[in-house]
Design a protein around this nucleic acid. Structure first.
Length: 487
RNA sequence: GGUCGGAUGGCUGAGAGGCUUAGGCAGCGGUCUGCAAAACCGUCUACACCGGUUCGAAUCCGGUUCCGACCUCCA
């Protein structure tokens, strides 16, 4: 049994992970608001928690991974009245709100699949859980931690803070917040500036609306995650994840809602991934400095020198620890691309190594190092460093400096498969458009070149290689003959 | 202003009191090769600044400067 430690944002310490129920893990991660194409920033939690999900399963935990799709409820700040982000986008595009939602949900799924993230076990939508949200509001009202004003329901943060600690996740105290929060128009009906909406009455022109005991309207910003995590994972569950930018107010509000409704915290471990930066600044929707994932995949963006394979993006993100920022640059991405190719080539090389009786490589040592790295709060950069030690060993052995016996070779293959493919979720970049005949044609071409070389006709041999290079086909000569690879 | 985090070699990114010169990319020298490519062997550049604690500090403490995140929607 492996001793997994993870950093809990709530305690600000690494803690040994212990599931509430032996052998089973519940994990909730905040998903996207589907009103635009996913950008590089969305890839971070997608990949971070994909590795968590994969590793928990690798350890034998039956894991339920819930990631929501927010298709209602977040308000745009520049609207006079709280206007729904998706409703606004819909009106701009002259579309039905659900049309916008469906379009961007598909786009998100496509990008996440290209990044080789496993689909979550359950992917609930906010609009599909209006009833659950209303029920939760009723419970909070009954418990006295919310109040209604003119069809709107607000969470009473000040009252809640008397009985529970509001702000414990983000390290804030309520007095500072009250004195620091500026008064905005239209908030006068709240008892305190720190209170937040659980239910909002829809203005006449507002498109997305549902009936409720208080008004025709829509649920507040933070409620969906509380309602849906409770529904699918229970009143107590193991891990809640999301981006660091959600710590306040979103996750703080979630804690308050759960506690106000059920009397205790719902989450045992809070995990937060850090941001991706560009020129040292957070890449984000509001700053407008984001590059979408599909732009990365096609290379169609003025800041990009080239197109990047989704696996390059994945590897790039995994080369940094999830709690550190990663700075985007073409240089960094190109370095990741080369490193990734080197790793994949070495895995192919390993399969082809001829075994001998002796083994100069101790697989168990590396196995232990691999597990130690991933167990230490998912330290993927350290894990990758160890993996590259193995890459070096593989290449050394292939070059004749060392040997591998049959058992070690098989162990090493399965170790590399487990960690590179199953846990880190990398996959080989499949060559595009296999026509079936390609291999045969290349055999003919390389056969011609071989004959030219035998005749010492270097001009012809180099011509063939150069022309193939123009098609992004690299020819490598070795003692056993020539091999080729695309891109 | 409040809360929190960061500053590491050409780039990127780990580490967190003494043996990691982490790792990747780039550079340099060599081996191999008809020449390349790949690979192998070897190798250079580092811990923002100033004090302090310690036998010993990139790592702990205090201060300084700079940067970032959150406090409005954000992954």
């Amino acid at each position: 049994m492996q001793n997994l430690k993870l950093y809990n944002s709530l305690s600000r310490k690494k803690e040994v992970f212990k599931p509430i129920t032996e052998g089973r893990v519940g994990m909730y991660v905040c998903g996207p608001t589907v009103y635009g194409d996913a950008h590089l920033g969305h890839a971070r939690p997608g990949i971070t928690f994909d590795v968590v999900f994969r590793y928990l399963q690798h350890l034998g935990h039956k894991t339920r991974y819930v990631r929501n799709i927010t298709d209602v409820g977040h308000l745009v700040n520049d609207a006079d009245e709280g206007e729904d982000k998706i409703a606004k986008k819909a009106r701009l595009d002259q579309l039905e709100p659900m049309e916008v939602v469906a379009y961007y949900t598909r786009s998100y799924h496509r990008d996440m699949a290209l990044l080789n993230t496993l689909p979550p076990s359950i992917e609930p939508t906010a609009t599909g859980h209006i009833i659950e949200q209303i029920q939760m509001i009723e419970k909070i009202l009954t418990n006295g931690y919310a109040y209604e004003v003119d069809g709107n329901v607000y969470f009473d943060v000040v009252k809640y803070n008397k009985d529970h600690a509001y702000g414990k996740l983000s390290g804030r105290n309520i007095e500072d917040m009250i004195s620091n929060t500026r008064e905005l128009d239209g908030q006068s009906e709240k008892r305190n500036s720190v209170d937040f909406a659980l239910w909002k009455k829809a203005s006449p022109e507002h498109i997305m609306r549902w009936p409720s005991p208080w008004s025709e309207g829509f649920p507040g910003w933070h409620l969906e995650c509380s309602a849906m995590s409770t529904k699918y994972l229970g009143k107590r569950f193991d891990i809640h994840g999301g981006g660091m930018d959600l710590v306040f107010p979103h996750h703080e509000a979630e804690i308050a809602q759960s506690c106000a409704s059920d009397g205790h915290d719902a989450v045992n471990y809070w995990m937060h991934n850090n941001m991706i930066t560009i020129h040292g600044q957070k890449m984000g929707k509001s700053l407008g400095n984001f590059i979408t994932l599909s732009e990365f995949f096609t290379g169609e963006h003025e800041s990009l020198d080239q197109a990047y394979n989704p696996m390059t993006i994945r590897f790039f993100i995994l080369q940094a620890h999830y709690r550190s920022t990663v700075d985007f640059s073409n240089e960094a991405l190109q370095a990741a691309e080369k490193g990734m190719n080197k790793l994949m080539t070495a895995i192919d090389t390993l399969e082809g190594i001829t075994t001998s009786n002796e083994s100069t490589l101790n697989v168990e040592d590396y196995k232990q190092k691999f597990y130690d790295a991933i167990n230490d709060d998912f330290n993927s950069p350290i894990l990758i460093a160890h993996i590259f030690d193995v890459v070096k060993q593989i290449n050394s052995i292939a070059a004749g400096n060392g040997s591998l016996n049959k058992v070690s070779k098989n162990d090493l293959i399965s170790l590399m498969n487990d960690f590179c493919f199953d846990i880190l979720g990398l996959k080989k970049i499949e060559s595009e458009a296999e026509h079936g005949l390609t291999d045969e044609i290349m055999d003919v071409v390389l056969g011609l070149r071989k004959r030219a070389k035998e005749n010492q006709d270097w001009t012809a041999a180099d011509f063939i290689r150069d022309e193939l290079a123009k098609l992004n086909i690299t020819v490598k000569d070795s003692k056993d003959g020539a091999s080729w690879s695309k891109e």
